[in-house]
């Protein structure tokens, strides 16, 4: 439960980062995520997240015709989305540092303790 909660928060951040680059549609985002190693996450997971981010005003969307197949919905970041991404990056840096620090210290002490 808390694990999926955390995962969602992380995915939110990654999606915001992916959308920042250029206007992008759902399938492309999913592909990009799996390239980055999120292959375990089923692709459809991004849509409920996008729905929430859109409701919260972090992203906006526009439908465009595509050469192959049906219309695609392209997403882009709003000003609020940019702010949220900055905040996420800040949170993530701190978290990453804390986790790395904890693991480094504890595994070191753990191995000394058992020795």
């Amino acid at each position: 439960m808390s694990q999926t909660q955390m995962m969602k928060g992380i995915l939110d951040g990654c999606l915001l980062a992916i959308i920042r680059g250029k206007e992008v549609y759902g399938y492309e985002m999913a592909e990009r995520l799996s390239e980055y190693g999120f292959g375990e996450v089923s692709e459809g997971t991004i849509y409920p997240l996008l729905m929430r981010m859109q409701r919260e005003g972090l992203v906006s969307s526009i439908k465009k015709a595509s050469t192959a197949g049906p219309k695609r919905k392209y997403y882009s970041l709003t000003d609020k989305g940019h702010e949220e991404l900055e905040a996420f990056l800040e949170r993530w840096k701190r978290l990453e540092k804390s986790v790395n620090e904890a693991i480094r210290q504890e595994t070191k002490e753990g191995s000394e303790g058992s020795a």
């Binding site: 759902g26 399938y27 999913a30 459809g44 849509y47 197949g69 049906p70 219309k71 695609r72 919905k73």
Partner: peptide, 12 residues
């Protein structure tokens, strides 16, 4: 959402 998922499934 149905349209968006349909497009996704189709491309997948």
């Amino acid at each position: 959402i149905a349209e968006e998922l349909e497009a996704h499934l189709e491309e997948a």
